[in-house]
Design a binder for these strands. Structure first.
Lengths: 228, 228
DNA sequence: TCAAAAGTGTTCGGCCTACACCCATGC
DNA sequence: GCATGGGTGTAGGCCGAACACTTTTGA
């Protein structure tokens, strides 16, 4: 399942099926695995050739669906993946595919509705305890822009102030030193930030039942303050 | 991958392969999926018939491994599962299978070492934010016993005091009203507890970036997506 | 000088750890 | 009594949410 923040909302790329079963219904992009490729390679291949998605900033496996009747007529196991595309990418999708708002999805073919619901839950959860935002955001951004991106993904407003503090304290973001120009209405220019790393990391593992670490061991010490 | 707390340590059930490839090496119990069964049904079937594991208190999918050369000679995709067995169960395992301490595992066939490492990480993580302990613990227990179980799984000591407070606050445990007998050395009798629910629940979804709920909303509600 | 937008200081509350202290039992 | 083990009270720390306040710009 490929998703991207477009026009201020989280959207999912769907494909309208041409043939039976479920002809005319929306489904996720799918395809078979070759004998000489991994699942990840197969996913990347199908996405690139079928829907022109070549800028996957993150790809992770969700799970394998195996209900016996999930595809009528024959036995098909399907392993689903979550792919994230940054806002700066705009694939040249074919006519039978289009983006759909995550909060307004159509009925879907097979068990793809379950897959999408699971995937959306996972992205939203991971925003809270990993640096997964790197895969949705552009290379550089202001905190206001990042807040809008998070809000679009989560489906609710996100405080700019607290977002900045949390992500900087966790060392997920760093200031680039650059500033965005003020708008025509004036206002203080916004500092530009970037994600420190562009591979998925758990930045805040759940802390319960762990003994309190020695005060010196904490890599919790922040870097330099974002002002210079 | 089946695991259980035995003799105060977390152990994994392994099977010694008789034939090539990897003859003589330890591997996880495996088996093919039938055309008319789900993956979960296939796992339960193989575990029951091959290694007499019939008391799976919890079974969850881990992921699908697809490296091209993972099985020499032919293409095999494998979907791995995590199965948990409570301490009260003692399967009658055949001669070619045996339990191995999680902290002292042998070299393993195929990519099974990776699977085991991944599974152990998942169990340990989920102890912190779900009620997954129900699948390892007996029906009733004292807090001292549960603490030993957690310690065995996590590989480090767990404070009885704080474990009790955390799990009761989250409404994961409830007192049965019964008491364990004091030992011969005396001491106050320990209250007996049980897990309130015996299906996996996220009891403490990661709270970051969420607006503060209305104070009247009571204890935290579950329902967020699983984190993994 | 004022409005607008960004960033910081500070308070508040929740939750978890640690540790001291109280309770119940057998000898 | 007193040792032994279980349970509770309480203090301290960390972290995040909320919000007021300061900073920096354009008109």
């Amino acid at each position: 399942m490929v998703c991207q923040v477009r026009d201020g909302t989280l959207q999912v790329l769907l494909w309208r099926r041409a043939r039976a079963p479920h002809a005319g219904n929306w489904s996720l992009p799918v395809g078979p695995v070759g004998l000489a490729e991994t699942l990840e390679e197969a996913v990347a291949r199908h996405l690139a050739t079928k829907v022109d998605v070549r800028d996957l900033a993150h790809l992770e496996q969700l799970g394998t669906w195996s209900a016996v009747g999930r595809v009528p007529g024959r036995r098909v196991l399907a392993t689903s993946y979550l792919g994230l595309v940054p806002t700066t990418s705009d694939p040249d999708t074919p006519h039978d595919t289009s983006w759909h708002r995550a909060d307004d999805l159509p009925a879907m073919a097979f068990d793809h509705g379950d897959v999408v619901a699971y995937a959306l839950g996972r992205v939203r959860a991971k925003l809270a305890y990993t640096n997964i935002g790197f895969a949705l955001a552009p290379e550089e951004f202001t905190m206001a822009e990042l807040s809008k991106l998070y809000a679009a993904t989560l489906g609710r407003p996100v405080s700019v102030t607290n977002l900045q503090r949390v992500l900087v304290r966790r060392d997920v973001l760093e200031a680039t030193g650059g500033f965005a120009a003020s708008g025509s209405a004036g206002g203080r220019p916004a500092a530009r930030y970037r994600f420190r790393r562009h591979t998925l990391e758990v930045t805040d593992a759940f802390p319960v039942l762990r003994p309190r670490g020695p005060a010196t061991a904490g890599p919790r010490q922040p870097g330099a303050a974002p002002r210079s």
